[in-house]
Design a binder for these strands. Structure first.
Lengths: 223, 223
DNA sequence: TAGATTGTTAATCGATTAACAATC
DNA sequence: TAGATTGTTAATCGATTAACAATC
């Protein structure tokens, strides 16, 4: 695998989709796929897929296509799935709990080590086998356990502080589920945010456009 | 407000962010802001912000900047926040419940009408004041209540079927939280997916790059 | 071999940035 | 008025698409 110094974020955002589609293909027993077939099923052009893979060196065989399992493995490698990354969850409210109980961290190459909260009622318990510690002990824990990602499901009011504490302790990644855009030093940490609100508003926009278009079309010819 | 026939998705994806930042500014009492100041706080260029707003006609005053409250309101209008859109939740597992209990639908212009599930234990109860009905009664409900968006938090195995049922009943939007890319007819429905997995894998990639860069730099000059 | 499909470069398209006249 | 900042067009940059030689 060739390492490309600068891969565009557009490509990076597609890599997980490739990985997911290839996993599905693998499960349904498909062994080989061409860029055009994969493109069709993903809504991309064959050209774009080949161009994307070319960023990392290209993993196909001319005249044949791509072997589903090796391509999946290569992309998994690029994504860093086999690097033994670890994660801790900050905040065990409804959302934190739901993610701990349902999200398949291991399928994404992560090991979920622990959760933290300030609520004495949950501190000391386990959620789906994951121990919950008091947030005041976060730094102690981080000093003893290498943690790759801190998952923020704390209330908005605590988001910035927890982000700062993770960063100060040297945690390289923050997965932010609060609807707050935390300030951070991009030299020290990578922040990936999941903004439910932004997603719903974008959907709202698209639905609204449909409604307006439908109204417009009412008075127009069907051409 | 001018209606632009074709606004790029890049712009659409930024609109919710503008809305969120303007809301924060409004809360902290800021009345006016220039494109350059807003750009600085959002990590965009002033040019891009003016270009984005120009898609819809531009809402500023030359020599002055933008009034925070009117700009926020205009963008809210563009996003369709005051259109009385409605939503139902399909699936009241951990994630569905977490979203029902925590997500501020009303701040995003939605009214949460009901939830549906197949588990007889929750059917007939309420979650945070929202009634839970049996999934078999979905079509009945949709026939009687105009629903704009169906939120999918069902198991992956049920995702496609529920999506199809929503579409068949004329629901124009699907907000998909299952880690499954549902097939749909783009003429009939808009699907917006929140893929936790894709988000974490992208973060994984970025962290991995840092690790590899750090290793490389170890042997290099500090230039 | 002939056919298929990739790897890779070139062309096109679209999005971002720059520039500046308009104007508050 | 002078200064500031937008609206809007033009220039640049980057990403996608097209093309085709390489080769399995």
């Amino acid at each position: 695998m060739k390492r490309n110094s600068k891969v565009s974020t557009a490509v990076i955002r597609r890599l997980p989709r490739y990985y997911r589609h290839l996993s599905e293909l693998q499960e349904t027993g498909v062994v080989r796929i061409s860029s055009s077939a994969l493109g069709k099923s993903m809504g991309l052009t064959a050209s774009q897929i080949r161009q994307d893979l070319f960023c990392f060196g290209g993993f196909g065989q001319q005249g044949y296509g791509y072997k589903v399992d090796t391509l999946k493995e290569e992309i998994g490698e690029i994504l860093g799935i086999n690097r033994g990354h670890t994660v801790v969850v900050l905040g065990t409210g409804n959302l934190g709990r739901a993610i701990i109980e349902n999200f398949r961290f291991s399928s994404n190459g992560f090991h979920l080590l622990a959760a933290f909260d300030v609520n004495e009622q949950v501190v000391g318990t386990q959620i789906a086998g994951v121990p919950v510690y008091h947030a005041r002990d976060l730094e102690d824990f981080l000093a003893k356990n290498p943690v790759s990602v801190g998952l923020l499901t704390v209330p908005i009011s605590a988001a910035q502080e927890m982000g700062d504490r993770l960063t100060a302790a040297g945690v390289p990644g923050i997965w932010n589920f609060t609807n707050y855009e935390i300030n951070f030093n991009p030299e020290k940490v990578v922040v990936e945010s999941v903004h439910f609100s932004d997603s719903l508003l974008a959907l709202n926009y698209m639905i609204t456009q449909r409604e307006l278009d439908a109204k417009d079309d009412g008075g127009r010819e069907n051409t």
